[in-house]
């Protein structure tokens, strides 16, 4: 499954995502003058990569490296300032909301903080059903039940409110909402960083199973290389808005080519008092 960038170029073959020269600049509100527009800072400075169907791509980097911005650009939650993004062959770089609407159910996102991404005043069932209604799905009740079954919560959870759930359960609701739409692509942005290690392991196992069972393509943003090692088939390392390394997961961990990747690996505190370099 570990597709190696553009190595597979059979005729008629199309990667799910083709990204060329992607640039994103955002207004720097911290430096905004009293009058006039704020200056723009370049977050992503020309990224080229493909995401093959069925890949679990880990995106890693320090804070401010642009990993979340990249994710948001892939889902067209923000509009790139340069380059192109093709999703399943369609150029979505500058599509307007009407043009994007039919595509939106094909890529979906799981958010970092389930408490702020789930409406506290709605029951779990309604939270999962809303996007289904929005995209005109039939058999909504059934689909909600199936999604809850898939994430191991069970249908009884449809009647609960988010505050009645633990952090791990809330994150499962986020996953259920994403997979209910039967998307081809899911972006998971730091979805286990707020969880205890024991729930972290459960959510990762769940995600691993769903990727395999539903044939999903996954982009998994994380600052934790250990988690990526466990879940992903490919790793992309971002540093200051650029890709410094993009390779199958085994290669990156066995022989990191970029100095920054090495630095990231060395900085991870392993549960071992004799780890060299500390």
């Amino acid at each position: 499954m570990a597709g190696n960038g553009s190595a597979t170029n059979a005729p008629g073959h199309l990667p799910l995502y083709q990204v060329r020269g992607l640039k994103v600049a955002l207004p720097d509100l911290a430096a905004k003058p009293l009058f006039g527009p704020p200056p723009r800072i370049d977050i992503l400075t020309g990224l080229d990569f493909d995401i093959e169907q069925g890949t679990a791509l880990g995106i890693v980097g320090g804070s401010g490296s642009g990993k979340s911005t990249l994710g948001r650009a892939l889902l067209r939650l923000i509009e790139p300032t340069g380059g192109t993004i093709r999703f399943a062959g369609t150029d979505i770089t500058h599509l307007d909301e009407t043009g994007l609407r039919p595509l939106r159910k094909r890529f979906h996102m799981i958010f970092q903080d389930p408490m702020s991404s789930l409406n506290p005043r709605r029951r779990v069932g309604a939270i999962i059903a809303d996007p289904l209604h929005l995209h005109g799905f039939d058999r909504v009740r059934e689909r909600v039940g199936e999604a809850l079954d898939h994430v191991g919560l069970g249908r009884a959870f449809a009647a609960r409110y988010p505050h009645e759930l633990s952090g791990g359960q809330r994150q499962r609701v986020g996953i259920a909402r994403a997979i209910a739409l039967e998307p081809e692509f899911i972006l998971a942005d730091e979805i286990v960083s707020g969880l205890d290690v024991s729930s972290q392991a459960q959510v990762l196992n769940l995600l691993e199973r769903l990727v395999a069972e539903l044939g999903l393509t996954l982009a998994f943003i994380s600052h934790d290389l250990s988690v990526i090692r466990r879940l992903c088939s490919e790793v992309m390392v971002l540093h200051r808005g650029q890709i410094v390394e993009h390779a199958p997961v085994g290669e990156v961990f066995a022989e990191p080519r970029a100095a920054y990747t090495r630095q990231l690996l060395d900085a991870i505190p392993l549960p071992d008092p004799d780890q060299p370099g500390w």
Binding site: V197, S198, Q200, A201, Q202, L204, N205, D224, L225, S226, V227, R229, R230, F253, L265, I268, L270, P271
Partner: peptide, 20 residues
């Protein structure tokens, strides 16, 4: 022991991130 087995460890993916 369970807590230690659930802790991420990139050098030994098989023996880490195990649910309690």
């Amino acid at each position: 022991r369970a807590l230690l087995a659930a802790t991420p460890k990139y050098t030994d993916p098989a023996a880490s991130l195990q649910p309690v």
